[in-house]
Design a protein around this nucleic acid. Structure first.
Lengths: 158, 158
DNA sequence: CGCACATGACACCTTGGTTGTCATGTCTGA
DNA sequence: TCAGACATGACAACCAAGGTGTCATGTGCG
């Protein structure tokens, strides 16, 4: 039967259900941002700076344009966030052997401490989401979101 | 065993994995927004207006404050979107038998056509996501996102 | 070498969304 | 029954996230 819940969906059912996901992602994103806003400022971190620090924490040193591409943000915006972070001493630039103008950005000790502390607090908050979510649920969720992301990957920014 | 993949997670594992979800939602949201813009060249419908039309399409006529509460948005913002939609003839207000000042907002034929067409185009785009996603995957995804949204809902607005 | 392209810097704009305030309308209870 | 608490609409000020445009400089490649 076409509606077997554990076999891949056809295009029609798929798009209808993905539409539901889509309708949740927007509000979720914006509300999460607001929530982060009320946690992060304690350390003086804007959402953008937070994103930059988190990226560097996970991927190590990167150039500004690399970060922009990784997060689908304009390079100019990322640059602004990096400058702001640098002004607070959370981040520093190291010469890039591969490009004189485009230096590598890396976390300072202070920056690493700040983002680690912030993530810890966010986790603490998320742990209250509770409910009856299973590991499988979240794995499936990640699968879906990742697929959508892959599909959208070919968009050009900048 | 604590890590049984089909039993509810404890707070620690839960928050760690939900953190992963969060990190995907941002880029996904931004990419999707751009993709929709380029694929379905918005006939002048801002995200806010789109949300209002979608709400009315799903729930029938509502008052402005009702919509605000339904979406955890400030009533003033919803009002602005409704006014904008009304100015374009997508929506009209009917007298509310239960309240003289707060009229019921409902879709016009034009509004219904516009939102239906938009949703159809979005669906068409999403149908290309393809992959091997099952109905169960998406259901789980919706469960996760809904839980997160509910959790964030207790931010009081207005 | 020359030319297309990537990068940094900086200014300006748009959009989603909130907060505040005021006047008017509605409901409830002593 | 009527006073005060609360809901609504209207309008304005404000904010943060993020994009766009442009210019000068640097880099890589045919």
């Amino acid at each position: 039967m076409v509606t077997d819940s554990d076999s891949p969906l056809g295009p029609d059912e798929l798009s209808a259900r993905l539409g539901e996901v889509f309708d949740l992602v927007g509000p979720l994103y914006r509300r999460a941002q607001r929530k982060v806003e009320q946690y992060a400022p304690l350390q003086g971190l804007s959402v953008g700076v937070r994103a930059v620090l988190a990226l560097l924490r996970e991927h190590g040193s990167m150039t500004v344009p690399q970060m922009g591409r990784a997060q689908a943000l304009s390079r100019q915006f990322v640059q602004r966030m990096v400058n702001e972070a640098a002004a607070r001493g959370l981040v520093e630039s190291a010469p890039n052997p591969a490009h004189k103008r485009s230096s590598l950005i890396r976390l300072t000790g202070e920056g690493a401490a700040a983002i680690t502390a912030l993530v810890a607090r966010e986790r603490e908050m998320l742990s209250q989401v509770g409910g009856d979510l299973t590991d499988d649920d979240i794995t499936a969720c990640l699968r879906v979101l990742t697929r959508m992301l892959e599909f959208l990957d070919d968009i050009d920014v900048d």
